[in-house]
């Protein structure tokens, strides 16, 4: 079962108008930078993008915003830290051109985890008594209040990984793992851009972070050069 696609554009050619796509990465770390850029060159619109942030550290996502490819964002930390700086996403949100479903970080990843594990919804203590609880079922369990949160099952997940074998078994590197495994499990189709692709048997079987069953397509990429910052996009 060789899952490698020689051409990154071929690997994403079935992305369609209105598709929901989870993009891995935590600020600048572990983002599918090549896949996101390839998506920005694809003629698809009305996308639902599921990602921690909307163009802060994951600068490539701003191209999707500039192209007005995104209809809705599901995220947990969408803005610049300083309120005096406005991102493209914030400008579009202010103009009413894009929707934002804000979800606490732990709830965000658990919604994806649940989506990948056949759990349609779950109760969580996070957000009880806050704006996050609006229009959500509250349930008492052992005398404590919990919110009902629904799973997220994206059409696609784009992830970045350090190493994979051709069957899709994946190893991440350090904190670049972050959201990537659960997004891969939640999505119908997962496309991984990978820095190193090896033959089956070459990875330590005891040290696989994401079993290949969750990964449909692999694309070999060069290790990207990334500056860890949420202050400014890299100079072109």
């Amino acid at each position: 079962m060789d899952k490698e696609y020689p051409d990154i554009n071929k690997a994403i050619e079935d992305v369609f108008d209105g598709a929901s796509i989870a993009l891995g990465g935590f600020f600048s770390c572990g983002n599918p930078v090549y896949l996101t850029t390839a998506l920005s060159k694809l003629d698809v619109k009305n996308l639902i993008i599921i990602a921690m942030t909307m163009g802060i550290g994951n600068w490539e996502l701003n191209e999707l915003l500039r192209n007005r490819q995104i209809k809705k964002a599901i995220c947990n930390y969408p803005f610049f830290r300083s309120v005096s700086r406005r991102s493209i996403f914030e400008e579009q949100l202010r103009a009413g051109e894009i929707e934002c479903e804000l979800t606490p970080m732990g709830t965000f990843i658990e919604r994806l985890r649940a989506g990948g594990a056949g759990i349609p919804a779950f109760y969580t203590p996070t957000g009880v008594g806050t704006l996050i609880a609006q229009n959500k079922e509250v349930r008492l369990c052992d005398g404590k209040e919990y919110l009902l949160e629904k799973a997220i099952k994206p059409d696609f997940a784009f992830i970045h990984a350090y190493k994979a074998d051709r069957t899709g078994n994946i190893v991440f590197r350090k904190t670049a793992r972050n959201y990537n495994p659960e997004m891969a499990k939640a999505a119908k189709v997962t496309i991984a851009e990978v820095e190193n692709i090896v033959e089956p048997g070459e990875l330590n079987q005891e040290m696989i972070h994401l079993p290949g069953i969750y990964v449909q397509r692999l694309v070999k990429v060069d290790r990207p050069q990334i500056e860890a910052t949420i202050e400014k996009p890299p100079e072109k």
Binding site: Y77, P78, F79, L93, L102, P104, M105, T107, T130, L131
Partner: peptide, 11 residues
Amino acid sequence: GHTGNIGGSMD
């Protein structure tokens, strides 16, 4: 709107 950077604070 009712948005902001929640991050992991609520959890």
